[in-house]
């Protein structure tokens, strides 16, 4: 297995860990963190697959996509955190209301 595939597999692992965390945690901050871990996994896959063969230069297109993606992820995270703070100040807890609690 060449390094690129290894990094891509690690990226898949990160993605799945993030997805797991997002599903089982109800605290919104943990969900946002898990979402970011998922995003990091995707970025790692894209960066790794940009250079799959050792004897070739890196493909710039996925790398450019990752730069774009990181900035968008940061701004989306900022928006999500603001929403979370608003939810917390209004309801007093940092989780979304559950159907069972009604």
């Amino acid at each position: 297995m060449n390094p690129a595939n290894f990094y891509a597999l690690v990226g898949i692992g990160l993605f799945c860990i993030g997805l797991f965390g997002m599903i089982i945690n109800s605290h919104l901050l943990r969900k946002i963190l898990a979402f970011n871990i998922m995003g990091s996994g995707v970025f790692l896959i894209l960066v790794a697959l940009g250079r799959r063969a050792d004897n070739m230069p890196a493909d710039p297109v996925p790398h450019a996509m990752v730069i774009t993606g990181i900035v968008v992820a940061v701004s989306a995270t900022a928006l999500a955190l603001t929403l979370m703070i608003k939810v917390t100040t209004i309801t007093g807890q940092a989780t979304l209301p559950d159907e069972d609690d009604k």
């Binding site: 595939n5 891509a8 597999l9 898949i12 692992g13 993605f15 799945c16 997805l19 797991f20 896959i45 697959l49 250079r51 799959r52 063969a53 070739m56 493909d59």
Partner: peptide, 18 residues
């Protein structure tokens, strides 16, 4: 999730050369 990871892993490993 393990199925998903295995599927994604298979997809990555079966990609053609660059």
């Amino acid at each position: 999730l393990l199925t998903l990871a295995a599927g994604l892993g298979y997809a990555v490993l079966s990609l053609p050369e660059q």
